[in-house]
Design a protein around this nucleic acid. Structure first.
Lengths: 207, 207, 207, 207
DNA sequence: TATGAATGAGAGTTCATTCAT
DNA sequence: AATGAATGAACTCTCATTCAT
């Protein structure tokens, strides 16, 4: 048994994902959820409240669950493997969340509401955001010597997630669906790049 | 003397930047430009056409001009310095363009129109997109041995620009204006990270 | 108790009849019906849908009801009397419907929509159109010998209704309201003309 | 060499005929005529003035020229042949003029302007309207005994033209183009019907 | 809770018309 | 005469939201 509230959340997420924010009118969402126009307002203060709820209750928790399973096996396995898992999860999330993220930035009022909600929620649960979480992990590996002491964990985390977000957006731009094989390869190359860097590794040996 | 068309472009860019896409109604834009409602339609086919024009005629050319000055001094100066300049320009661009980019993704019709316009334009001038341009530069430096032979130029370019885009978006999210000093530091750290990588540099020396 | 839908239909018919199609904006109709602008769209898909509904639900049924009562008393009374009753009803209908009929032909999209609606409706109920109905009656009387075997029932029906439509239009053109006495006389003369024809009746007897 | 005024008249007539009145904006007409938006107002007071001019200067004169050639060969040829010629011309005219006639009736202001213009013109030239012209012809033939003394020429004229107008409108309604062969047959049958009437001709002979 | 008709502001867009050039 | 950019009122239609049932 799904509650009406949940049906509305699911319906809204589906409409935004498939038809875009502009098509996600309260009427369209109500129809998709199979309930009357007014019902939405028994469960959410207004349209913005519903959108924020999708982000906070649908998209982020899934992402968060996946993220939090991973990085605290510090010292185990390879750093590279952990980063690849994270990147894969991030890529999927950014692809899925792209339309709603765009919507957030397209409507300042929505952005403001989301910001407030995020702060409130962050106080209740003690969640971090993805990038700081990854940075913490990298710092821990740094202490173990498995990551360069010169590395900047915060920036590296930013780069990993930023590149994934940017790539997902470009997929959206070109109307491409995710391709498991291509994505895996991208992720591997990305992690390798971030690990190895652009500088020639053993400058002395090229003579 | 500015043409009416230019006044409309400027006005629209200003409204989107300061009040968001949702507030950028044709009426609001016309008022901001100081002309009548209907005048917009003497210069643009419709609202979407105006938005695409802003992107193609205002935002991208500025970005492009800045980009194209830089990377072809291959072999001169330091790779790191070149990348820092590029990253700074990219950061400024992504900050400025963020609202319109978001708008593009929030409205599928706009995205579609932009995509078509971009293709048409790409055929007329023979422009590349930023990431391929940077990748080409890196490949050239690779040939000179100033970039690791193992590096993946395409991915590195993607990471540089993606991280900048992502960072600019977070600034927008938190309502922060660009801070020259902080941005410069970010850029330096980012380039250093991408150059040096996460792996300990001289693994042999850890004894 | 009249429904909002009915109030809108009546209001629209009134506006078109008194002020013409050009004045029958959705706003004007809503005002005339005493409801909000948007209410129209809770009951009709769009403006065209409303106009088609007036024709199909208001004008035609009245006309049709009047028509169908009459012509099947085949063989009873005089053919002439039946035709006069039909012509009177037709005259009243064409006078009343003239503005909307004109509107239909002035806007191709409306015409198209009306055509489609008429086809759909004709499939549901098994109605004929007025002229074929009259032609069938005349054919029946022909079989009884009360109408000339040489007569062309279809053309005669066309002529009766066509003349009424044309006359009603001229009344509209000169801004005249229907005049019961004048109309009756016209109808009588028209029916007599169609009955007797232009040819001298007994050519042999004029010598 | 055609004057700009004439080019505008032709263009407007063409647009109305092919795309309907609703599409006949001043802009569309100007484009069709190959001149600037404003040029129209150098030749016509306003849009309504142009439409009235089309009717008075393009459609009616052609019709009138054709009509006036015919009916005054009183006593010559057969009445039937003359009526058939008239009906054919009328049918073509009504088909061609239907959209503009509808437009006239859809917009009361246009109708009013046309009415005034017609009166003014009728005073300058001493033209009659088609139906009175035909009625006069029939009256003349009546005096010669070639038309029944009992016939009502005015009504008969009304019936001939009204039926043609009504038939042309139905062709428009069904989106049919004129078919020379079908039209000729209709005209023959119509004239025969009006000539012979519905009554059995020689009632005494049925024994 | 659920309903869905009613609301009315506001959206994008079109249009006849004007007027400086 | 011809131009065509500018005008701003008016149009159809959509929308988030309310509220009596």
């Amino acid at each position: 048994m799904t509650t009406t509230r949940q049906r509305l959340l699911d319906a809204a997420e589906r409409v935004i994902r498939t038809k875009g924010l502009a098509a996600a009118s309260t009427r369209e969402i109500a129809r998709e959820a199979g309930c009357a126009d007014g019902t939405l307002y028994n469960h959410f203060r207004d349209r913005a409240d519903l959108f924020v709820a999708i982000y906070l209750e649908e998209l982020l928790p899934d992402y968060w669950d996946a993220l939090s399973k991973l990085p605290y096996r510090i010292g185990e396995g390879s750093v590279q493997a952990h980063l690849e898992e994270l990147a894969e999860i991030a890529l999927a999330f950014y692809y899925k969340a792209a339309p709603l993220r765009a919507a957030l930035f397209a409507e300042p009022e929505l952005l403001q509401r989301y910001r407030e909600a995020l702060i409130t929620q962050a106080q209740h649960r003690h969640q971090s955001r993805p990038a700081p979480l990854l940075a913490a992990y990298l710092r821990a590996e740094q202490r173990l010597g498995r990551v360069s002491a010169q590395a900047n964990p915060a920036i590296a985390a930013e780069a990993l997630f930023g590149t994934c977000a940017s790539y997902a957006l470009r997929q959206r731009f070109f109307g491409e669906s995710p391709n498991v094989e291509a994505d895996r390869q991208l992720v591997q190359e990305l992690v390798r790049s971030l690990m190895e860097g652009l500088l020639p590794r053993y400058p002395a040996t090229d003579d």
